[in-house]
């Protein structure tokens, strides 16, 4: 299962990277969202999968799955949501100000 998950993560990272390399700002933001999915799965996978029960003491006496990666991912999910929201508003502002959401048109400043 771990090997399969690593392959899945690799594919997701490739797709995310490909989208980040696009011209359009929405594709880029979506790329970062996919990257964060991939990273969450990667953290969970490297901690070992299905090595025990749900990490709730009330459910069983153990062994438990590694709880530390889960705590890290919980933080990461929330932060990546905040980042995505901020990027979307930034894209909105950039579009309002420059009239384009295309990175190739946004490059350079006229007053440079």
């Amino acid at each position: 299962m771990e090997s399969l998950m690593v392959v899945l993560v690799g594919i997701l990272v490739s797709i995310g990277t490909y989208l980040i390399l696009s011209r359009h700002i929405i594709r880029v933001i979506l790329g970062t969202a996919i990257l964060s999915h991939a990273v969450h799965l990667l953290i969970l996978t490297v901690g070992g999968l299905k090595t025990g029960g749900v990490p709730l003491l009330s459910q069983s006496d153990g062994p438990f799955t590694d709880a530390l990666p889960q705590a890290l991912i919980l933080t990461a999910i929330v932060i990546s949501f905040a980042t995505t929201a901020f990027l979307l508003v930034l894209a909105y502002r950039a579009y309002k100000k420059n009239g384009s959401a295309d990175f190739r048109e946004l490059r350079g400043m006229s007053d440079e």
């Binding site: 090997s3 690593v6 993560v9 690799g10 990272v13 797709i15 490909y18 991939a38």
Partner: peptide, 14 residues
């Protein structure tokens, strides 16, 4: 480039 990046991340994971 994307495939290479994905492969690199997979290697790190493994």
């Amino acid at each position: 480039v994307s495939i290479l990046v994905g492969a690199t991340v997979s290697i790190i994971g493994l």
